[in-house]
């Protein structure tokens, strides 16, 4: 049993390696370091290539901006459990959102805007901001009338369901009259400063695909630019 190691040591002496034990330890450390560096590089690539959050994925009220939310939410599901209307779900691998984070889809089940905001109170980490105490200040997204072609009000009818179901009545969505060749149209118009993105309008749109949709604010709103042409200066 002792022969191979004796042979090794004699080789070590022959080639002038003085401390084979130390050499072995270095080898071990560097092998692990190599695995760690390689693994980190591959895993980082994998993490960065995950699909982005889909536009229909909405966060519960008080959610921090998406990047901060991703790092602060610890995927425990306490908000999910405290939602009295069971609209929230933690993302599984088939959902287009970071695994384990809570979300709702407005068209399936909108936020009912509870005045005591139980989901925010349940959050242990502050990923749902505890400073949000007035549900009317929540920002889950913003409603946008994305399809003018199919909206019944644009066709001259007065469907106006989105206006009538809006929980921030008369403020977040209102009808603005527009005169065109079809006559006087009553156009549902969103006030982004009042809209919380609860999704009730999207849920109740009578068409089989909603023409009004709640989008994350950065997707749904333009921002006026720095120069006169309205675009950002390159």
């Amino acid at each position: 049993m002792t022969k191979p190691s004796a042979q090794k040591e004699s080789l070590a002496v022959k080639y002038g390696i003085e401390q084979p034990a130390r050499r072995k330890a270095f080898k071990r450390v560097f092998r692990h370091l190599g695995v760690a560096v390689l693994g980190t590089a591959v895993a980082q690539a994998a993490i960065f290539s995950r699909p982005a959050r889909a536009a229909k994925i909405l966060r519960p009220p008080g959610a921090l901006p998406e990047k901060a939310f991703d790092s602060t939410c610890i995927r425990c599901g306490l908000c999910v459990k405290d939602c009295p209307y069971d609209i929230l779900k933690l993302a599984s691998w088939t959902d287009p959102a970071p695994l384990g984070t809570p979300f709702f889809v407005a068209r399936q089940d909108p936020c009912r805007m509870c005045t005591d905001i139980p989901c925010v109170k349940a959050c242990p980490t502050g990923a749902l901001d505890p400073l949000l105490t007035d549900i009317r200040k929540a920002d889950m997204g913003v409603a946008v009338l994305v399809d003018h072609e199919n909206c019944l009000n644009y066709k001259g009818l007065t469907c106006s369901v989105c206006v009538r179901v809006c929980p921030i009545r008369g403020e977040a969505i209102s009808l603005k009259p527009i005169q065109n060749e079809r006559g006087l149209l009553q156009i549902p118009t969103v006030n982004p400063d009042k809209c919380t993105g609860c999704g009730t309008c999207e849920k109740h749109c009578v068409l089989s695909e909603a023409t009004i949709r709640v989008l994350p604010r950065e997707l749904g709103l333009g921002v006026s630019g720095a120069n006169a042409a309205g675009r950002g200066v390159w």
Binding site: H32, V35, A36, G39, T40, A43, Q44, I47, F48, K67, D70, S71, I74, R75, P98, L99, G100
Partner: peptide
């Protein structure tokens, strides 16, 4: 090694890497 990777990746990517 995986523990160190999970912590380093959390710093780099800003998400909870092991989760």
């Amino acid at each position: 090694v995986l523990l160190v990777m999970a912590l380093v990746l959390s710093v780099i990517t800003g998400t909870l890497a092991w989760e």
